[in-house]
């Protein structure tokens, strides 16, 4: 395993969180992730995740005309996606606390 496996779940959560702020398109999403400090993955990784999240109806997409020319696919969260984000936030803070506890050896 599976730092990749773990990373995927975390990336999922981060994508949901970024999309929840405002609707974004693929490149913007990758750029924001990078801006927050995710450097070690190839940007294209987000697309299989987005495809799956669409299949699971966590996000929906609409095509909008961009200024540059081609139509762009913008993502927004569905109610189900918002729930999923809530769950992720709780899980993540639990995990964070637990891992910190272990590392700091305190009970």
């Amino acid at each position: 395993m599976s730092t990749t496996q773990m990373m995927k779940g975390i990336l999922d959560g981060c994508l949901l969180s970024i999309i929840s702020e405002k609707e974004v398109y693929g490149y913007e999403l990758a750029e924001k992730l990078e801006g927050y400090g995710f450097h070690s993955f190839s940007e294209g990784t987000i697309y299989p995740l987005l495809l799956r999240m669409q299949k699971e109806e966590l996000v929906t997409s609409t095509l909008k005309k961009s200024t540059a020319g081609p139509k762009r696919k913008y993502y927004t969260l569905t109610p189900k996606g918002e729930q999923e984000l809530e769950i992720f936030i709780t899980k993540w803070s639990d995990l964070q606390t637990t891992v910190n506890n272990v590392l700091n050896k305190k009970i």
């Binding site: 693929g26 490149y27 990758a30 190839s42 294209g44 990784t45 697309y47 139509k71 762009r72």
Partner: peptide
């Protein structure tokens, strides 16, 4: 395919390589 094409165009404008995107 359109989405990725768009991404690659944007990325290459900023000097990134194909590998930076698709691994």
């Amino acid at each position: 395919v359109t989405e990725l094409e768009d991404h690659l165009i944007e990325a290459e404008k900023r000097g990134k390589s194909t590998e930076d995107i698709i691994g």
